[in-house]
Design a protein around this nucleic acid. Structure first.
Lengths: 224, 224
DNA sequence: GTCTATATGCCGATAGAC
DNA sequence: GTCTATCGGCATATAGAC
């Protein structure tokens, strides 16, 4: 308002300059937290990787806890948003395999494709101070509940067998997906193939079909 | 040899006294590493929890790295031994569900039933110094290979469908099992029930049967 | 906004008394 | 075997110059 003739309004320039530094710090912190862990990542290391000095971080953040807290929030939110928008783009009566593949691929994509925030969240959540962790449990709970509601809906539509504990199923799925941060090698296998494999595992299972209408590839069959 | 008349031979007494201290340190370290993480657990904290002083630890161990290294080894070895001996007690032609339930229950039991070493291993493996981690990859690899060979054997006997990537299957299983350290509540659910649930998930899958011989509990069925 | 300088405290590790 | 005392270093955080 005060200097409207400038091509770049000074107020916004200042704001975005400060915001850019802030964002650089968060990006760098997320990467280091993911690589080194929470306690092993010092503010000096974060600052150095940003071409800054440790004291300067305190212009943007009050403490190390505040930085890690923000990194954690962004991490969950990105995965949540990715899964939610992918699932909402599906036709309303999509079947179990389609829905699960879509949600699994979105979760894995957010977790593994160059998103330091999401994998940092998985890796350091158990290492942060109790107060920080306690402050993030509700958002994590909401994300868990979203998946559980997704499966409940599918079960009510007859897509999932009755008699299955869907809460535990969600936890098993989360484990299988989040553990990929420990072994996934982008060069060896595509993300889509991995999503298909996991979806296939939890929808159809490993068990061989009892050979009723099939030709029976193996000669050995115990009982008719 | 020098004082054979004593009821407790002095050499063994001395040896077991030192060994007892050593074991106390390892037990305590495993618990603290599991609870607080690697970097956040100081030698002072370990010593204090053992009713000792930090300097005394160096009589038994050369460094913090040596302590954590030993904790890691014990952790993998206990899970490995538990699974191996359980599976070897099965009849040689046990089917997929029986075998998998047995192995899963053994792994989960070692991981969750008051074994600080095993869950410490899962939690801090990604936090320890690179040299320590590198020194333990081969043992972990052997354990992974054991599971993979188990599944390969089942597939060759026709218990598992063809066309499934068994290496990825093992990783997914490991994820589902190891992630239980993040949410398992001993008071709310038994270990055996959890093993059954996971085994059922990965053998039979979630998918509802196509309603060929069933009564069809829901009225809604899209196509015949 | 970022710097330098510094306060204060814990870290892993060592030396030597007992 | 365990202790006390201590080394050098790095941690988070703060104060004030520019």
């Amino acid at each position: 308002m005060s200097t409207p003739n400038r091509r770049q309004p000074p107020v916004e320039s200042v704001k975005s300059a400060a915001a850019a530094s802030r964002q650089t710090i968060l990006d760098t912190a997320a990467r280091l937290f993911r690589e080194e862990g929470y306690a092993a990542t010092s503010l000096r290391a974060i600052a150095q990787a940003c071409d800054m000095k440790a004291g300067s971080l305190y212009y943007h953040f009050e403490s190390k806890d505040q930085i890690v807290s923000e990194v954690l929030s962004i991490g969950v939110q990105r995965v949540f948003d990715a899964v939610k928008s992918s699932v909402e783009a599906l036709p309303p009566n999509a079947d179990l395999t389609t829905t699960l593949h879509c949600a699994v691929q979105a979760h894995l994509g957010a977790l593994l494709h160059a998103h330091d925030f999401t994998s940092a969240n998985i890796r350091i959540f158990g290492q942060v101070p109790d107060e920080v962790r306690a402050g993030h449990k509700s958002l994590r709970k909401k994300y868990e509940q979203y998946w559980q509601d997704l499966l409940i809906g599918l079960q009510q539509r007859g897509e999932i067998r009755a008699g299955i504990d869907l809460q535990r199923t969600v936890f098993f799925l989360f484990g299988a997906m989040n553990w990929t941060t420990e072994w996934y090698d982008q060069k060896k296998s595509g993300l889509s193939a991995m999503a298909s494999e996991l979806t296939n595992l939890v929808t159809s299972g490993l068990k061989a079909v009892p050979a009723s209408a099939s030709t029976g590839s193996k000669a050995k069959q115990g009982k008719p």
